[in-house]
Design a protein around this nucleic acid. Structure first.
Lengths: 103, 103
DNA sequence: TTTTGTAGTCATAAAAAACTGACTTATTGC
DNA sequence: GCAATAAGTCAGTTTTTTATGACTACAAAA
């Protein structure tokens, strides 16, 4: 019943830490979509077929805790929430571009 | 917020593909160790405490299939095997350096 | 006050990944 | 032939991650 810590004993590799940030089935995809503009929960659910509420909810929360996304309540017509890429998140963009150039 | 649908088959994100390459509990660590020189199975087993034969075996196989590591049989004193970083693998090094500069 | 839209949570089930220990294969040295 | 070293494989178990469906919360519109 003991849940293991995300960070293990000898975490000597910063790259590993960052890779862990984007680990999981959907986080890289969510991150990529966020680079095109703010995300909404319902939108993600529609666009990321094959995933589900629970998983996306957890993934968004993790991306938020890590500091790559920021949750913003939009007080408009139908009150809703948007997830924005943070400055920290944007700093990863060149790395993604580099990855894509290799792909 | 208009984007194409993302499914598991429809893999449109090269970064995701590469992130997948290094997904899993030990692959980033193995990759990092490989940047310091050739790896031996027994050495990994010793150095990566907390892992195990089976998992490392699978991880090495995956890194090899992906083309980041190359398996070489060394016909010397005690015949053994070494895993070398491929050219493709080396091309990822700048990305890791960038990641580390952000960590 | 009931319904609608948005954004979730919760308990549970299923699937995937990692772990364990016994067993295998190949080569070299005695 | 027999033991030692190196590099694994295999079957079974445990742990972690992801998926499902029912349910909740809140604001606004009807």
């Amino acid at each position: 019943m003991t849940t293991k810590k995300i960070t293990e004993e000898n975490e000597t590799c910063p790259a590993q830490t960052l890779l862990k940030m984007l680990s999981g089935k959907w986080k890289p995809e969510i991150f990529r979509l966020a680079t095109n503009g703010p995300l909404r929960f319902s939108g993600l659910l529609r666009e990321i077929t094959g995933s589900n509420k629970q998983t996306l909810s957890v993934a968004l929360k993790e991306l938020e805790e890590i500091g790559l996304l920021q949750k913003v309540i939009i007080k408009e017509k139908p009150l809703h929430i948007e997830y924005y890429l943070t400055e920290n998140g944007k700093s990863l963009l060149p790395i993604f571009e580099q990855l894509e150039s290799l792909g």
